[in-house]
Simulated scan of single mutants.
Amino acid sequence: MIEIEKKFLVLNDSFKAAAFAQNRIAQGYLSSVPERTVRVRIKGNKGYLTIKGISNDTGMSRFEWEKEIPIDEAQKLLLLCEKGIIDKTRFEVKIGNHIFEVDEFYGENEGLIIAEIELTSETETFEKPNWLAKEVTNDKRYYNAYLSNHPYKNW
């Protein structure tokens, strides 16, 4: 139940040609407090409820609990969320032995593209594609909960 991931900005959209899957995502936050974010997500035709704890000092690891919920319940819960629903498309790209989840944001966060990779340890090595830019793992501005309250277009 510990999520270990790194986040990177993305240079361009060349990753799209290598994507093996993509899904439109709408997500909102019932609580965006960093110590315990509670997220509602609709990904494709499925709903999810996720609880995340605060990140450790490196920003790479934190508690995460997620359960699939009926889509009609997720739609109703989205109506209860704090303002700032995140709208994005997630592209999944396999590089070496890992899958990068690349999120292209719309609406208030238009122009932002972030790639995430989940790891089994904080020291695990991985192949970096040429479309990766600056690492932003420990920059809380790039957390979705932050983006929902402080849109990228206002930076």
Rank of each mutant, 00 (worst) to 15 (best):
F20P: 01
D87F: 09
K7Q: 11
G28I: 07
A26T: 09
L30H: 04
G53H: 03
I54M: 09
M60W: 03
Q27S: 12
G84C: 09
W65Q: 09
T58K: 13
S32Y: 02
A19D: 08
L78H: 02
I51W: 02
G28E: 11
D72A: 14
D72Q: 15
E3F: 07
A17H: 02
L30Q: 02
N56G: 11
K88A: 05
A21I: 01
R90I: 02
C81P: 03
L49V: 12
Q22L: 06
G47N: 02
K7H: 07
G84S: 06
D72V: 15
I54N: 15
G53Q: 04
S61K: 09
V38I: 15
V33I: 06
K16Q: 10
L79D: 12
E68R: 14
F63G: 03
L9R: 15
I69C: 10
E82K: 14
E35T: 11
D13M: 08
A74N: 11
M60V: 08
F8G: 05
I25S: 06
P34M: 01
L49H: 07
G59I: 10
K46A: 10
A17S: 00
P70C: 11
E68G: 15
A21M: 00
N12P: 05
S31R: 06
K46M: 08
L80K: 05
R39H: 02
M60F: 08
N56F: 15
L79Y: 01
K16T: 03
Q22C: 09
V33Q: 12
R90Y: 00
Q27R: 15
L78F: 03
D57E: 14
V10N: 12
Y48W: 09
L11G: 00
I86C: 08
F63H: 05
V10S: 10
T37Q: 02
S55M: 06
N56I: 10
G59R: 11
A18K: 06
D57V: 14
E3M: 10
A26P: 01
R36C: 09
I69V: 10
F15E: 00
Q75K: 14
S61E: 14
P34K: 01
R62K: 06
K6Y: 03
V33S: 08
V38F: 08
